[in-house]
Lab assay of single mutants.
Amino acid sequence: HNLTITQGKLFFHYNPKLCLSEIHKMEEVSGTKGRQERNDIALKTNGDQASCENELLKFSYIRTSFDKILLRWEPYWPPDFRDLLGFMLFYKEAPYQNVTEFDGQDACGSNSWTVVDIDPPLRSNDPKSQNHPGWLMRGLKPWTQYAIFVKTLVTFSDERRTYGAKSDIIYVQTDATNPSVPLDPISVSNSSSQIILKWKPPSDPNGNITHYLVFWERQAEDSELFELDYCLKGLKLPSRTWSPPFESEDSQKHNQSEYEDSAGECCSCPKTDSQILKELEESSFRKTFEDYLHNVVFVPRKTSSGTGAEDPRPSRKRRSLGDVGNVTVAVPTVAAFPNTSSTSVPTSPEEHRPFEKVVNKESLVISGLRHFTGYRIELQACNQDTPEERCSVAAYVSARTMPEAKADDIVGPVTHEIFENNVVHLMWQEPKEPNGLIVLYEVSYRRYGDEELHLCVSRKHFALERGCRLRGLSPGNYSVRIRATSLAGNGSWTEPTYFYVTDYLDVPSNIA
């Protein structure tokens, strides 16, 4: 807008934040220059609390790290170098490059900038070799853009010569660093050979998330399962459950009422301010606690030095998902009996873990797994792929695949051998790939016309006998059925096997 004052003059007093240069501009645009008398524009009460600059400061050096910015700028000295009290560095987070010096300023003089007072450097006698002032900004957020400017702080001049310097606002972004852990990993099994893994992005990506790394490792069953005799009275049979499938998407929606109208769909109840505040506090606490764990609990591995020492970490090797089922080394339970199943799973520490690289999504279907087997899954978020990966501390989750139908069934015939004193040795093959492992066998036998009897055969007993022995049988026709019990439950009964026990007292003698 054009402003013209045809008559009258300007009068400025007691404006401590208004620089004289701005008042002189007002004289020019209003056409009143030359009308004012000496005392109409006070030299001592206008701009006496402001830094009124008329020179431009330029930054000469900028260096960044993930949490620091090192700045240096060209030296500046007023005509009387004693008038320079120091520099004021202003900075704040700036997602967009549209910041002005006066953003967030209120009537009390406060604003949204963080201000650092910096002492002037030592003055050199040689004007050509003056030290460049600077400042190291610490405690910054990774991968965050900051708006920065600097200006001088000078003393009051009796001659009211307006001098000083100020830089333009520059924008500097800190470097990326390792992201925080992925949030809320959930693993479920939808079949006997697959596990579905879902997660949420890290709360602090500290860069642009480029991919996720998912490692999985087959877990050995508890050692007590191999040692305890679950045929003993009072000892509860062990059981394991597989990871249940995901709930429906509708039930997972946030901010939804727990109660549904019987007449149909209901609208979600909005969260109160107290609920939102509580969630923010919980989120802040979780982030602080995660940072504490990362800094205190997890110790970084030592990389190899120039002395030739090897990095103890196993090298990563990509495998196809079809090879995942046989990740671990199978060892027989008892070496003397080769027909026992290889369900003991000690994992070799030198073995390469299978892994998958996930790009542009937060889910993965891990296939080719062994049925009813526990897996430990390790999830890392990465925001750099080359020249070397920059990934987060791992988040861990466990899951067990679903049982395989008929995996616990005894394959092959049940054979028998009759000894003296009416002892019958029953023999059968253990299931080759049971659900988890076989903890015991149930032997059901009966003599024709009598009630059915049951015998429990422990895992250890089966390994020693290759089956079991029935003792003290009365003469007669017998039928026997056997079924295995694994961590997933009972298998199917075998087809009945028949044998006849004679009275050993009636056996004919070869003595003449």
Rank of each mutant, 00 (worst) to 15 (best):
D204P: 00
P205T: 04
G207R: 10
H211S: 08
L213A: 14
W216K: 15
W216S: 05
W216F: 15
E217Q: 15
E217N: 13
R218M: 15
Q219Y: 15
C231R: 05
L232C: 15
G234V: 08
L235P: 07
L237C: 15
L237D: 10
P238R: 02
S239H: 15
T241S: 05
P245C: 13
F246L: 10
E249Y: 00
Q252G: 10
Q256R: 07
E258M: 05
E265T: 14
C266W: 10
C266S: 05
S268C: 07
S268G: 15
S268T: 14
C269K: 07
T272D: 02
D273E: 10
D273Q: 15
S274N: 05
S274K: 11
I276E: 02
K278S: 05
L280F: 15
L280P: 14
E290Y: 02
Y292I: 02
L293A: 03
F298T: 06
V299W: 01
V299Q: 08
P300Y: 04
K302D: 14
G306C: 11
T307R: 14
G308C: 11
D311N: 11
K317N: 10
K317A: 09
R318V: 14
R318Y: 04
L321V: 10
N326P: 13
V327W: 15
V329R: 14
V334R: 12
A335Y: 05
F337L: 12
P338F: 12
N339F: 08
S341Q: 10
S341K: 13
S341D: 05
T343C: 10
S344A: 12
V345M: 09
V345F: 10
E350Q: 08
R353Y: 14
R353D: 15
R353H: 15
R353Q: 14
V358R: 14
V359D: 00
S363I: 12
I366Q: 05
G368M: 09
R370V: 15
H371P: 12
H371A: 13
T373M: 10
Y375F: 14
R376T: 10
T386W: 12
P387Q: 13
E388S: 09
R390Y: 09
C391T: 01
S392Q: 00
S392P: 13
Y396T: 07
V397R: 13
S398E: 02
A399T: 07
M402K: 14
P403K: 03
D409F: 14
D409L: 13
G412D: 11
V414C: 04
H416L: 09
H416A: 07
E417L: 10
E420N: 15
N421V: 08
H425T: 11
M427R: 10
M427V: 06
K432G: 04
K432Y: 10
I438T: 09
I438E: 00
V439F: 12
Y441L: 01
V443W: 01
S444R: 14
S444L: 06
Y448C: 12
L453D: 08
L453N: 12
H454V: 07
L455D: 15
L455E: 02
L455H: 12
C456L: 06
C456R: 06
K460W: 14
H461N: 08
A463G: 12
L464S: 14
E465M: 09
R466C: 10
R466L: 09
C468E: 01
L470K: 01
R471L: 06
P475D: 05
G476M: 01
V480A: 07
V480W: 04
R481Y: 09
S486P: 00
L487S: 07
L487W: 12
N490H: 14
N490A: 05
S492N: 04
S492A: 09
T494W: 02
E495H: 11
T497Q: 05
T497V: 08
Y498G: 13
Y500A: 10
Y500M: 05
V501E: 01
D503L: 06
L505K: 11
